[in-house]
Nucleic acid binder design. Structure first.
Length: 764
DNA sequence: CTATGTAAACAAC
DNA sequence: GTTGTTTACATAG
């Protein structure tokens, strides 16, 4: 709480622990207890070393680096890294140092780029460029990499989720990123780009697909598919929904008859041909009918029905793109296999499955995690006001890891009890964690609740609006796997027409019809007519697809921004935060596979699930409300990201695609080459908007918000910057967003004037 | 709760 | 019998 004024506020943080590979440590776990495990062994530490200087470490650090004891957090030091320094080496040195010191010495390091901090002052052109470039990426993707500790003992894993809203990119991006990072980070083995292999695709799909795909490194996996496929006896790790998508996307026209779908599946997954019970076909049909993303089109003559994937929902996934477990390919190093693979898996895989045991694997990434806790929407301040939404998640989606990674939803929490903060001992800062899905932590409440702030009424924010917006916006998302399913959405909207009314214009007619025709037309289908229709109902079914939405969009994105979250954070008393605030991040996965049904935003009425529908959720509060991210989520997920894409919302498909990610691989955009970039760039992104800006301000700024931002810089108050937290005890490297000045959000809590700079001159 | 999987009842061909 | 739609229920997370 307020007690420690000094503590930096960490807005965002994510931590990942990896299984360590090495003997020495056990996988790190969370801090709290974790301490013990891992590192300990070696510490010779002395017992004390107060935090003061770095003693333990003898390692040499590059010139220019400054290490300062954290004013209030024990065993924590703030490392100011000069712009030109080699972060990797610094991390390694710090890791070694932390290990040496063990639990008694500094074992947590907050890495801050001195350059970055300056940001306010002005970033260099180069930086800006990077930033801007990166912005996007960052925001969206999560980066993870593992690094081998110098000692060799354990591996550090890092994941930066970006939260972005856009998301999109999700999985792939991440994976790529990860990889890249890996390459850079670790000397050992992972080569940077090894990853990218090409994939060949069976299908070659037209353009869009290919493009994205290729880019992605995902590919790596591609080739090998056969391996696991081989295992006939084993049920494929994909959901029916995923397989259907693979099948449909394997064709040039992206449409397929039911029978062909059966055939394709049998051909590619012998399990269904030889082992599965006949009922699997029923399941296929069920899935086709159930998910809105699958649209039935009838040939011109009306005799043939083709199943297609709604363009807005189609990520053009193909089997090639999916990660295959056995894939040997990649790898060069063992590590690769482990860490990279994990990452890939997580990201790529289906959201659902991740677990080993589980059958399905997600193909897509849901975005998962991110950390993003709070994000300020960069772009627009406006958002802030309006909504509270939580930023969300979207991502959801991703998918990640099996066990850990993926979870379905993630939430952000602030200062989770468990986590770091705890470990730190001091409340010094609060973190938001976005974990991937299932947060290890306590669960807790969701943001929503919190959001509202205790006292507050929703009224204050238009949550509802936001939500809707998102939905709408996202509307495309619905299908997109990327997202989560959005459970909330469905319900909400659904229900209410009334409610909707508020929010959305309910254009649609409502239930009834639903669906009927879709026009989507994309691809070659033109000749065909689409027919779907469904009744309303409550069933899970898609009924809605309707796209009526168009109208609605009103709300749209703009405001949505994550402001809410932001706000929340600020508003909430620290205490609460600590407790459990979760902000929501959304997370979702979203995978491609998600059921669209729910998603229907507008459409709503129908909501898919019948049963649920009734429940209706309150507009905002719904559990998922947070999910909706404002903008575009189409892609996927998370919007938090600072970077928001502004308006993206409805961009054309293609655009969306890009955003989304999967296809589009974010990679291209910008990946950071190094942590350093991350630090620098991100911060900008992150920072920029939100805090500072006033709500009104940038509506338009869209994607590019950054440019401006930088310049304007953060207002004084905002000195947000991103940093990395290296916890040698847990072998984790997490990205955090901290408020150096303490103003802004925290003012309430901390008091306006506090500033890190007081403690750390270099920051100035 | 949600997302999935399965089974099954029905309807329309 | 096939194809589609919906329900209902079960399960894992």
């Amino acid at each position: 709480m307020r007690t420690s004024p000094r503590r930096p506020l960490i807005l965002k943080r994510r931590k990942l622990t990896l299984p360590d590979g090495n003997a020495s440590n056990s996988p790190a776990r969370d801090e709290p207890d974790g301490e013990s495990k891992g590192v300990p062994k070696q510490e010779h530490s002395k017992g004390d070393k107060p935090r003061d200087r770095v003693e333990c470490g003898t390692q040499k650090f590059p010139a220019g680096i400054k290490i300062i004891n954290h004013p209030t957090m024990p065993n924590t030091q703030v490392v100011i890294i000069p712009p030109d320094a080699d972060i990797q080496s610094i991390i390694e040195a710090l890791t070694a140092k932390g290990r040496e010191c063990g639990s008694n010495g500094p074992n947590k390091f907050i890495l801050i780029s001195s350059g970055g901090s300056s940001r306010p002052t002005g970033s260099t052109a180069a930086q800006q460029t990077l930033q801007s470039k990166a912005e996007t990426t960052l925001a969206r993707s999560t980066r993870c990499f593992s690094l081998r500790a110098p000692s060799g003992a354990s591996r550090l894993s890092v994941c930066f989720p970006a939260g972005s809203g856009e998301a999109t990119s999700s999985g792939l991006d991440n994976s790529l990123t990860n990889i890249q990072w890996l390459g850079k980070m670790s000397s050992d083995g992972l080569g940077p780009c090894t990853v990218k292999q090409e994939m060949e695709k069976e299908n070659q799909t037209p353009v869009q697909e290919t493009i994205k795909i290729e880019e992605d490194s995902i590919a790596a996996t591609a080739t090998s598919s056969s391996l696991w496929q081989d295992s006939i006896s084993e049920r494929p790790p994909y959901s029916y929904m995923a397989m259907i998508q693979f099948a449909i996307n394997s064709t040039e026209k992206k449409r397929m008859t039911l029978k062909d779908i059966y055939t394709w599946i049998e051909d590619h997954f012998p399990y269904f041909k030889y082992v599965a019970k006949p009922g699997w076909k029923n399941s296929i049909r069920h899935n086709l009918s159930l998910h809105d993303m699958f649209v039935r089109e009838t040939s011109a003559n009306g005799k043939i029905s083709f199943w297609t994937i709604h363009p807005d929902a189609n990520r053009y996934l193909t089997l090639d793109q999916v990660f295959k477990p056995l894939d040997a390919g990649s790898p060069t190093s063992p590590e690769y296999s482990e860490s990279v693979r994990l990452s890939l898996c997580r990201t790529l895989a289906d959201p659902f499955s991740s677990l080993p045991g589980r059958k399905m694997k997600p193909l897509l990434p849901r975005v998962s995690s991110y950390l993003v806790p709070i994000q300020f929407p960069v772009s627009q301040p406006l958002i802030l006001q309006s909504s509270l939404k939580v930023p969300q998640p979207m991502a959801q989606g991703a998918s990640l890891s099996g066990s850990e990674a993926i979870r379905s939803s993630k939430r952000v929490r602030i200062a989770p009890k468990v986590s770091v903060s705890a470990s730190l001992g001091t409340p010094a800062y609060s973190l938001y964690h976005c974990d991937e899905r299932p947060p290890p932590f306590a669960p807790t409440q969701s943001v929503k609740e919190n959001n509202s702030q205790p006292g507050e009424a929703p009224a204050s924010f238009p949550a509802a609006l936001c939500i809707k917006e998102e939905k709408e916006d996202s509307y495309p998302d619905k299908w997109l796997p990327s997202f989560p399913p959005v459970s909330s959405i469905k319900e909400e909207p659904v229900q209410s027409d009334e409610e909707t009314g508020l929010l959305l214009p309910v254009p649609c007619v409502k239930r009834e019809k639903h669906f009927t025709v879709l026009k989507s037309p994309p691809r070659g289908v033109s000749d065909t007519v689409i027919i779907k229709r469904r009744k309303m109902g409550r069933s899970r079914r898609k009924q809605h697809l309707v796209l009526p939405c168009s109208e609605e969009p009103v709300l749209v994105l703009p405001e949505s921004g994550g402001s809410d979250s932001f706000r929340l954070a600020s508003d909430l008393p620290f205490l609460q935060e600590t407790q459990s605030l979760e902000l929501s991040c959304s997370q979702e996965e979203g995978g491609p596979f998600k059921t669209p049904v729910k998603e229907m935003f507008c459409k709503l009425p129908v909501s898919s699930t019948p049963s649920k529908v009734p429940t209706a959720t309150p507009p905002m509060g719904g559990p998922d409300s947070w999910r909706f991210a404002p903008i575009a989520k189409e892609s996927s997920e998370l919007d938090f990201s600072p970077v928001r894409t502004p308006q993206v919302p409805f961009t054309s498909l293609q655009e969306n695609l890009d955003l989304l990610g999967f296809n589009s691989t974010p990679l291209k955009n910008s990946l950071f080459d190094s942590p350093r970039q991350l630090l620098q760039t991100e911060s900008n992104d992150m920072v920029s908007g939100p805090l500072t800006s006033s709500p009104a301000s940038n509506p338009e700024s869209t994607k590019q918000s950054s440019p401006e931002l930088p310049a304007s810089g953060l207002p004084e108050n905002q000195s947000l910057m991103e940093g990395l937290v290296l916890d040698t005890m847990n072998n984790s490297l997490s990205k955090i967003l901290l408020d150096i000045s303490f103003s802004g959000l925290e003012d309430d809590i901390l008091g306006p004037e506090m500033s890190w700079s007081q403690f750390i001159p270099e920051l100035r």
